[in-house]
């Protein structure tokens, strides 16, 4: 583990403060996708970014936004490198990020704290279990799955059975 310099810490905070292009209520650090910043000998800066999903189309916009933010701080030579390992998980979304998602009307992912594949049972579409997906609007725990895939790959479409509002759920990965 290389100790980060004060400059690296500052640039990391700056890169992390860039808003997510698809969920602008979240910053990239709240989403947990900025892995590190290294200042190289000649002053060149390398930022490590990890995709949420392998095919996430937002990654290129994220990289461009990070380069822009660092240039505005006076860093001209910025390379954003995509890293796959260790794989991003929804557990990497910070507590503040989860709070903002809920406020934005998206049910945050439940904690998985697991490694390896997500085991999915062939079960009913309602989740009245010990850790239900709650409606972000009214907080009701009785919600049903409408579609496993929603407006983006990372979300599922659900409906609240109390207030009847449909909502996006940031599904566990």
């Amino acid at each position: 583990m290389v100790t980060a310099t004060a400059l690296e810490a500052e640039l990391l905070a700056l890169a992390g403060s860039v808003p997510d292009p698809e969920l602008p209520v979240l910053t990239l650090s709240e989403l947990g996708v900025v892995r590190g910043v290294r200042v190289q000998d000649a002053g060149a800066v390398e930022v490590e970014l990890t995709p949420t999903y392998t095919g996430c189309p937002a990654i290129e916009t994220m990289a461009a936004d990070i380069r822009q933010a660092l240039r505005e701080r006076g860093v001209q030579d910025v390379t954003v490198r995509t890293v796959l390992a260790p794989a991003w998980s929804t557990d990497d979304i910070t507590d503040e990020g989860r709070r903002k998602l809920r406020e934005f009307g998206i049910a945050p992912p439940r904690t998985t704290r697991e490694t390896g594949p997500v085991a999915l049972a062939l079960g009913p579409t309602r989740t009245l279990d010990e850790d239900p997906v709650r409606c972000p609007h009214c907080g009701c725990a009785d919600t049903e799955l409408l579609s496993r895939f929603s407006s983006t790959a990372c979300k599922a479409l659900r409906r609240c059975l109390a207030c009847r509002e449909p909502f996006d759920h940031f599904k566990e990965l």
């Binding site: 999903y53 392998t54 794989a87 998980s89 390896g116 594949p117 999915l120 496993r148 990965l173």
Partner: peptide, 30 residues
């Protein structure tokens, strides 16, 4: 799942993709 458990050149991608594919499989099974 098999590739993700190893340490070969495909392990990093497989560790991500296995989770994505779990949803594809669930979709097909349902």
């Amino acid at each position: 799942a098999e590739l993700a458990a190893g340490d070969g050149p495909f392990a990093a991608l497989a560790a991500k993709a296995v989770k994505e594919t779990a949803y594809h499989r669930d979709h097909a099974e349902q």
